[in-house]
């Protein structure tokens, strides 16, 4: 567990600055580019539509995994239990009832558990790249983290992060961001990163 929780900030944390109205377009473009390049990636957004509301959390976690490779649900349960057990000391996971959490429908979850489900879904994909909507770094209640930074670091230590943020937005958190502009040629070819 100590290895998992040791924050590895050696991986780059990129921040793509763009006009506020283009954030969604850029996220679509980045996800599409990563998919076409065959690179394992995940996407984080705190918005309510990020999880499908008509299926349980468990099915929401299973869906992208099963899409990318055959993945029996029994393996998902085991993988999740291992992940949650390893992270049990970190913030939002302290008092989590795993069974009821997995059986719940997303709309019935409080916001921090909703974000946790999105986070676990991304973590299970073991991404090389993490595309993040800047809203992820705005705490829903001032001073209270939707996702503790330590949890983010623990889950995505080996992934490169790329946050798409509107101009002049300050991202909360302990991370040092490297700026990328919209006209950066690397955004057209993922081999150049």
């Amino acid at each position: 567990m100590s290895n998992l929780l040791a924050a590895d900030r050696s991986k780059p944390r990129w921040r793509l600055d763009c006009p506020a109205q283009d954030v969604g377009v850029w996220i679509d473009h980045l996800c599409d580019g990563l998919k076409r390049a065959g690179i394992d990636y995940a996407y984080l957004s705190p918005q309510r539509g990020s999880l499908l509301s008509n299926i349980t959390v468990r099915e929401n976690l299973w869906l992208p995994l099963a899409w990318r490779r055959p993945f029996p649900p029994q393996r998902l349960d085991q993988g999740l239990r291992d992940l949650i057990a390893n992270l049990s000391g970190v913030g939002a996971l302290t008092a989590l009832d795993c069974d009821s959490f997995l059986k719940a429908y997303p709309d019935n979850l409080p916001i921090h558990q909703y974000c946790l489900a999105i986070l676990l879904r991304a973590a299970l994909l073991r991404p090389r790249w993490l595309v993040i909507d800047a809203g992820w770094f705005f705490p829903p209640i001032p001073g209270e983290w939707c996702t503790p930074p330590a949890l983010m670091d623990a889950l995505f230590a080996s992934a490169a992060w790329l946050t798409v943020a509107p101009h002049a937005t300050t991202l909360a958190g302990p991370w040092n961001w490297t700026m990328v502009n919209c006209d950066d040629p690397r955004l057209l070819s993922w081999d150049e990163w």
């Binding site: 996800c31 995940a42 996407y43 957004s45 899409w67």
Partner: peptide
């Protein structure tokens, strides 16, 4: 239609699910 309005369909696409 609800999935389109709430952005769930777009979220699926962004996850790489057709």
């Amino acid at each position: 239609s609800l999935m389109s309005v709430t952005g769930e369909r777009q979220a699926l696409q962004r996850l790489g699910v057709d």
